[in-house]
Amino acid sequence: MVKVAEKIKNTKKKINSLDFDAHWYRRVFHAFGVSFLFYYMLPNEDWINLLKIWVPPIIVVIAVVLEILRLKGKISSNHFFGLRLYEKNRIGSYVFFAVAILILLRFFPQEIAIPCILCACLADPIMGEVRHRFGMKYVYVFGFLMCMFFFMVAWYKADVRLMLLVSIVGAFGAVIGETKKFWWLDDDFMIQILPAALLLIIWIIVPYFGFSHPEPIIYQSIMPW
């Protein structure tokens, strides 16, 4: 009897350690997303432009196919380390994450896309950690300030009034996108697309108010040959 109790205790410990590990795995996976900003550094060459057109959608299609196979039970969920319990029977958040990044890279100017990607990749896991350690009430303030910082960095070349407007609107959209949860639409998608949609409106109307769009944040590399 004592042995059984001990075994149960040990198994619980192992499971807890795995949960903790998955927790950090999810955080690192989020932070890894910033690697996609390399897209903007690629030089303007014909063959590279072709890769830029085809590689990101191919990655997303692979993720979608894997997810369909997982949901149909053809691939075991055990192969997808870091999945949350509620993701067992719905589309995994990594697919939403990838689709949102693809939309931003392809259809939005980099001045909008880069801070939104930073919000999802860095602000989101940091907000999660703040929630985990200090509680929900600090998440809004900390998340707002952090997202605001990312938008300010991306728009610091613009007029100061425009930079302030964009950083407040962008941070507001990102925090709402992160904290508003839907079963069918993941926060990893909303934290990127909601601020991007709000900023796209500003981007369109900015010239009518006499402001000019800011210069790019990342410049394309030049081939050495």
Binding site: R27, A31, F32, V34, L118, C121, I126
Partner: peptide, 10 residues
């Protein structure tokens, strides 16, 4: 930002 943000979690 990228380096610091990643080191924090790595």
């Amino acid at each position: 930002i990228i380096l610091v943000g990643n080191i924090i979690f790595d």
